[in-house]
Structures are given as structure tokens and as C-alpha cells.
Design a protein around this nucleic acid. Structure first.
Lengths: 195, 195, 195, 195
DNA sequence: ACATAAGCGAGACGGTACGTCTCGTCTTCTG
DNA sequence: CAGAAGACGAGACGTACCGTCTCGCTTATGT
């Protein structure tokens, strides 16, 4: 006895269009940010009807969120080798590298946008930032337990420190090098390690 | 011998209107951010012709920039008492307090806006952030010379650390207390102090 | 073998709106002439978006042209019974009647407008005045051939005489009676008839 | 005992400006008609403040009326030699000549404008057309009395005929020659003269 | 086989805001 | 006081998108 069978009826959505739409969305977002994306523009460039977009995303904001989430895949590995320094560098250096890559400006634009669009904010928190935060705290807690970190370390604050520093420099257009992750980790660890 | 005479000709701009316009702009910005400000709305609420606004600001963006710059005066004191911990707390706690005040959301909205408007960015860097940064570095350098801070301290990174942490939490809507400035300063200093 | 297919694509324009728009345009034109028509006004009164009007007419002028052309149908019959006097009266008296009717002021306003808008001029010439002119000349030429009119009659001038007199009086707000067409025709014919 | 002294006090209006203003008004009117005249444009081109114009003419319409009345002096001679044909030609041919001159288009534009601006209409009627009409009727009445014209001639209609024909052709952009006045007069007179 | 659903490109629709322009009025300062 | 300059409230201009809604067509079941 099946309560729901609900196999899809009628014509199926064309998956090729998903890509096409997100591609053009991202392209427009890349040069000009949120305001320079227009659904009508995306539709025209993608050779697609507006309804085809609205069928997938209820709103311009949702479209952009999806485009960035899908394409700017910011979900990196969450390593746990027991070597705190190595794990921290492994977590943060992909972010540094991407910020320095051609994608950098777009990432920064998106990060800024994210502070303005609650919807974007929530989505991003859920799928990207949140998991990193949780993992980061675990690494720090373990290190404290192992005695690799001073016992009075404020986990809450320390876990934020790395991303905070990296994003702060990026958003403020302050320069940093490819090895910035390592430098920061060293600065922080050196002194937080028990003597 | 006058190089420039350029005395103002014609009727003067009414300074009362400057205020009126910025007031309503800020009010609209405060509840809804950039997109919920409309020049037509500001004009209507202020009982002012649209031209009167456009005469002052060429663009909606420029209007908002001006409103925030003029009203959200973020320039705090730059103390230098020789007591590093006290000076750092003095510098940062006004920011924390404002972020927790009713103005907080607006400050955050503005900070996000600032990452999108190069003009706003530059202006803000010049008049607010830049001066703080310079002063912060001086404080740290002096502390290192006095021996209050380890000699291998990376001034560049350490100077950014406090604002980075505070803004990162604020922009990400992570909670923090009124004493957050002190807590962070303690965390950072405790361990950077030579044993 | 189809040269053009050009089947209509997308949603069709709502014909009811065509009417609605022209109605309100004409109403506004009727009391105040060209300057008192405003696209925003028409849109508001018709409960229609401005774009819906601009999609149909590129310009305020074009809108008014269309409204008058469509609604003030000035194309009358072009009779040819062989009775010159009767035919002339048949051609001209509808014009006289309309000029004396409530529509009169609007007709006059439009005629004045027509001298200012080349587009309106051309359109009107093509679809209304021109055909009348041609027919009028034919009537006169035939009458000359029949011997009902003096052989040295200047067709060119005589054909213009009736409309010229009627419009001149109307445009200059000189009074005339309902039988003005007959009076003028009589005056002109009486003496142009061979003795 | 003087009830009013009211000698003009303060600076006198600069008469040179009267000219300057009307010149530029007419120039703008000449290429584009009513709508392409703007007080702000006239002021700018004449190097004059807007108030200087508004001090002289209460309204854009009034300005244009004045410009045309002052500059397009349409007041011709009103001859009465006893020779009807000669007098009619003398009255009408200056108009024909001007319509064919470079001023022609402007005259036509103004005539069209005049049908739209009641103020302009009235002014023009009073100072130009009216006097011509009265004189024309007198010429015709005298001719009838002298027996140069059939006694059943409709003075009212006949007096309008010449200007009606000329203006009708001009306003409708129908071609005519420099001798059009004579041709029309001949056509009309030839047959109206008693045999 | 053929109705029944959707998906799709196109584009009309009611709105809202943009930034520009002119109107006619009103200061402000100079000659 | 007249004059040049120009600010001011008002409001229309024509443009651009928003998110929704037909259209006629194509593509897939389910009967």
C-alpha cells in the first residue's frame, strides 16, 4: 500500500538549463555584484524564458544564493590528524588560495552580499560556515585535552580567529600572501602552546 | 591678489534640508538596508523635491554613503597611556557597545554596504579605519619596545586581530557580550606577554 | 513556401487595454489638449502600468495620434451621383455637423495638433484628407467635362476651397450654422456655373 | 497735490534684454515649435536669469506670444484704391511671400500654435487678423456698391476666402507659387464680376 | 493511441523606482 | 531696485526590472 507514489507527471525539467542559468547568473554577479544581476538579463543570455528561472528559484536572491552555493563550492575538507598546526593549515589555506585566485573578487563580493541578504546568510551558515566552525572547535578542544594548547584557551574566540583574520583582510582589500594561513597559524599557536 | 574668488552665487542650499534628507535616508536604511531606501521615498517623507536630493547626491548609493558617513560617526578616541591593555580596551569597547546598541543592525548593514561601494570603502578607510589601524600599530610597537610584548610579535597581524574578531562576530550575527572587548584583549595579551 | 512565418510568440496583447488606454487618452485630450494629457495620468486612470502604454506607443505624441486616428473616425463617404451640388454637400456637411457637435472642440484641438506633429500630419494626410482631396478633384473634373462648371475652372484651387473655408472658420472660432456647407457650396457654384 | 507720483524707483529694466530674450525665444521656436522652447534654455542662451524673463512675461506661453507678435510683424498695409483686384492682391501677396520665405516654417508653426493657446489666439485676433478682416469686408462691400461685384455676394464668406485658401495650403504643406495671391484673386473675381 | 500534465521560449501585465528635465517661485548677492 | 545665479517643490518623462500571467508548443507518462 503506497500512500504516495507521485511519480512525476508531464515533461521533466531540463537539467542542462539548470547549469546554463547558474552559469550566467554567476557571470553577471562576478562583474558588478548583486545589483547587476537581473533575472531578465540571465534569461536573455541563457536563451531561456523567465518562467523557467522562476520555476526553479522563487526570487532573485534565491537564484544568486543557489548560483554561489552550487558553483563556488566552499566546502573544504575537515581534517583531523591529531597534528593541530597541520590541521588548521589544511583547513584555512584553501580559502586563502581561492581568495588570491581569479575567483577572489567574486568570493569577496558574495561574502559582502551575504551580510545583506538574510536568506543568503542563513543558507550559507547552514551549508558552509557552520560545519567549519563546529569542526574547528573540536580540533581546539582536542588539542587542549592533549595538552597541546593552554587549558585556559577560549575555544569560542580562538575558533573564530583564523577565518576572522583572513576574511577581514580580504574584505578590506588588505594585501596578504599565499602562505598567510601558515603565518597566522604560527603566530597564534606559538604563544598559545604551553611552555 | 586672489587666486580664487569663487564666492557662491545664487541662492544657497538650505542646510536644514541636508539634515532632513539624511535623517530620512538613515531611517529608511535602518529598517531594511540599502534596497529599502528609495529616493522617491526619502523625497516624499522629507517633503522635498527629488531634484533637491539629486542636486546634492548624484546617485542613490552616494546618498546612502553620505547619510552614514555623516551620522554614524565612528571616529573614537585614540588613547596612548602606556598601559597597553587599557589602551586596547579603550579603543575597542566603544565599537562593541555601539554594535550592541539599537544602532547595531544599522552599523552592520552599513559595514556590509561598504564592501560593495568602492567610494564608501575609500572614504571610510581614509577617515576612520585607517587612523585606527595606524594608531593600533603604534601601540603594539611601543609595547614590544617596552618589553610588554614578545619581540617576535607580528605587528601587522596582531593589529588587525581585535577589529577582525569583533566585526566577524557582528557580521555573522554571532552573539557577544558587552565585555567582549576586554575578554578578547585578555585572551590575546595573556599569552603574548613574555613570561 | 513561406517567406515569413512570424507567428505571434508569447502572450498576446490584451485588446481590451487598447480601448481602455485610448479612451482615457481621448478624454484627457478633450479637456485641455495635448499638454494636459500625461502618460502617467492615462496609466493611473486606466489602471494600467506605464509599460503597457509604452509597449504600444513609443511616445506621448504617438499615443495621442493613435487615440485621435482611431476614435475620431473622420473618414466620410465619397459620393459620386453626377449631381455636383448634392455630392459636394454630402461630402462637406458631415464635417460641419461634427464641428458643431460636442466633439467639435476636440476636432479643432486635434487639427491644430496635427500641424505640429509631422507624424500625425503624414498619417492623417494619407488616411483621411488625401482621399477626400482626390475625390473632390474628380468630382470637379467630371463637372467641367459635363459642362456643369466653367471650363477655365482651376481644379486645384477649387477643390481646396470648401474644406479651407470650413476649417478656417472653425480654427479661428468664427461662428457658422449647421447649413454652412450648403451655403458655401451655393455661393461657389452659382457663379462658377456657365451662364 | 499729487495722488500718485510713482516715479519709477530703483534700477530701470534693461531694454537690451527685451531684445535678447525675444531673439532667443524666436530662435528656439523656429526649430521645433512650442515644446522646444524652454524658459531655462532661453535664459541660458541669452545669458540672463530666469527671473528676468518671468519679470516680463508671466508664463512660457506669454513669452512666445510676445516674441512672435513683436518680431513676426504680420501687420501689412490695408490699401483702398478703388481697384478691388489690385487691393486684394496688395493685401494678400505679402503673406504669400513671407510664407515662401525662410520665415515660412516659423509662421506656420506659430499659426498652429495659435490654435492651441487661447491667449495667443485672442491677442493675434485683436492685433492682426481682426483688422484685416474688417478691411477686407469694407473693400467687398464697396465693390458691390460700385457694381464691381454681384449684388448677392456673401460678404462674410467671400472675405474669408482668400486667407482661408492661403493658410489652408500652407498649413497642409501643399505647394504654391509666389503669384498664388494673384491666381486666387483672379479665380474668385473673374466669375464674381457681373458679366 | 491518446488524453493529461507539466516544461519551455516568448513576452504581456501591474507595479515601483530610477535619474532627467522643465515649470514657476524663491532667495542671495552684485552693480 | 534690476539682474545673474541658482535652489526649491512639483511632477511628467521614458527606461529598467520585479514577480506573475497567458500563449502555443514540446515532451513525457498513464490509461
Amino acid at each position: 500500500m503506497k500512500l504516495v507514489d507521485h511519480r512525476p507527471r508531464g515533461r521533466r525539467r531540463d537539467p542542462a538549463l539548470d547549469d546554463l542559468i547558474l552559469d550566467h547568473t554567476l557571470a553577471m554577479f562576478a562583474n558588478g555584484g548583486y545589483e547587476s544581476v537581473s533575472i531578465e538579463g540571465v534569461a536573455a543570455r541563457a536563451g531561456v524564458g523567465k518562467a523557467t528561472i522562476y520555476r526553479r528559484y522563487p526570487t532573485k536572491a534565491a537564484l544568486i544564493v543557489a548560483a554561489v552555493r552550487e558553483r563556488l563550492c566552499l566546502v573544504d575538507q575537515l581534517p583531523d590528524t591529531g597534528d593541530l598546526r597541520a590541521d588548521l593549515v589544511t583547513m584555512m589555506s584553501p580559502l586563502v588560495r581561492r581568495l588570491l585566485s581569479p575567483d577572489g573578487p567574486m568570493l569577496i563580493a558574495f561574502m559582502a552580499e551575504r551580510f545583506r541578504e538574510p536568506e543568503l546568510e542563513a543558507e550559507f551558515e547552514r551549508s558552509v560556515v557552520g560545519r567549519k566552525r563546529v569542526h574547528m572547535r573540536k580540533l581546539l578542544r582536542d588539542a587542549v585535552e592533549r595538552g597541546d594548547l593552554a587549558p585556559d584557551t577560549d575555544i569560542e574566540i580562538s575558533a573564530e580567529m583564523l577565518p576572522a583574520l583572513i576574511w577581514y583582510r580580504a574584505l578590506n582589500h588588505l594585501p596578504f600572501e599565499a602562505d598567510f594561513a601558515e603565518v597566522v597559524v604560527d603566530q597564534l599557536l606559538e604563544v598559545r602552546a604551553p611552555l
